[in-house]
């Protein structure tokens, strides 16, 4: 499994006075099992980009190769793309509609035309993967659940389609710290279990730094930067000029360095910062 995005461009309201370039010559690739973080301020083109990966939007030019097949080609069957690439939108709990959790999660797999036995097996697996108790929750109405649970059921609805690529658009938006942690842990579990490619769109630099193998930085429809967390977050000035910031621990260490405090190594997470400060303070 691999995704190769070649020079895609997308224009909204083409030909009208308010036309705007939403994607401008974007290219990147993703390999099997990679965890890819996408960052950028609101309106930078992140959502437009991920909708292209799922075939919901078609580029004006350029191609998207999924394991060698160009999904922008006119003869491609949408169902085949959706089978391979799952997309979880922002606030996905607003798309729940069935009477029971079980039926709602089954909606995606049923649309793929799978048989009943297979659907049931997948529903069970997906509900358990997102950390919910299948027997306890399957017959309950999704509307009676807590906010965090609803979000997980909605994500299970996409996971049950067993996509080889899972895209999550700000899956933790609006959650409290506990539910936030739970959803992230769940994504890591799914990633480990399915060994799929994950795209995570997020404003939370701490999460992006901790989880990503590779980061794509969007700005004004262009791919402004791409690279490992270390490469991307060592460009503090560039990020700030794009309206973005560093993960908190990196910010702290940079502030300290500016005051002449020697702190060695790359600092992205709390653990890194702890180690750097410990090394500095224990000398005395």
């Amino acid at each position: 499994m691999s995704i190769q995005v070649n020079n895609i461009t997308h224009i909204y309201s083409e030909g009208l006075p308010h036309q705007s370039i939403a994607l401008d010559d974007v290219s990147f690739c993703a390999e099997d099992g990679q965890f890819i973080g996408i960052i950028g301020h609101t309106g930078s083109g992140k959502s437009t980009l991920v909708q292209h990966l799922n075939g919901l939007l078609k580029p004006k030019s350029g191609s998207i190769l999924v394991s060698g097949t160009d999904i922008t080609a006119p003869e491609v069957v949408m169902r085949d793309i959706r089978r391979k690439i799952g997309l979880v939108f922002q606030y996905p709990e607003y798309q729940l509609f069935e009477e029971t959790v079980e039926k709602d999660v089954a909606f995606g797999p049923a649309n793929l035309g799978l048989d009943e036995v297979e659907i049931q097996a997948r529903v069970k697996e997906a509900i358990e993967l997102v950390g919910l108790d299948y027997e306890e929750i399957r017959k309950r109405s999704p509307f009676d659940l807590s906010g965090g649970q609803k979000r997980r059921v909605a994500i299970a609805g996409v996971i049950a389609m067993k996509p080889e690529v899972l895209i999550l658009d700000e899956p933790t938006a609006g959650l409290d710290p506990r539910a936030h942690r739970d959803v992230l842990t769940m994504i890591e579990t799914v990633h480990a279990h399915e060994n799929n490619i994950i795209f995570l769109v997020s404003h939370n630099m701490n999460d992006i730094a901790r989880l990503s193998d590779k980061i794509l930085v969007m700005d004004g429809g262009r791919l402004a930067l791409q690279g490992s967390p270390h490469e991307v977050f060592s460009r503090e000035e560039t990020l700030i000029s794009l309206g973005l910031s560093l993960p908190e621990p990196a910010k702290l260490i940079n502030m300290a360095r500016q005051k002449g405090i020697p702190a060695e190594g790359t600092v992205l997470t709390v653990e890194d910062a702890e180690e750097a400060l410990y090394q500095f303070l224990k000398k005395d």
């Binding site: 909708q51 939108f89 798309q95 509609f97 909606f107 649309n111 609805g157 996409v158």
Partner: peptide, 26 residues
Amino acid sequence: IMKAQQARGADFESGNIIRRAKSLIP
């Protein structure tokens, strides 16, 4: 909502009238 359901494989365009009406429920 339409986009989200499409991403879950919903199809609003094909089938007869009853099928299409049913596809609006989600």
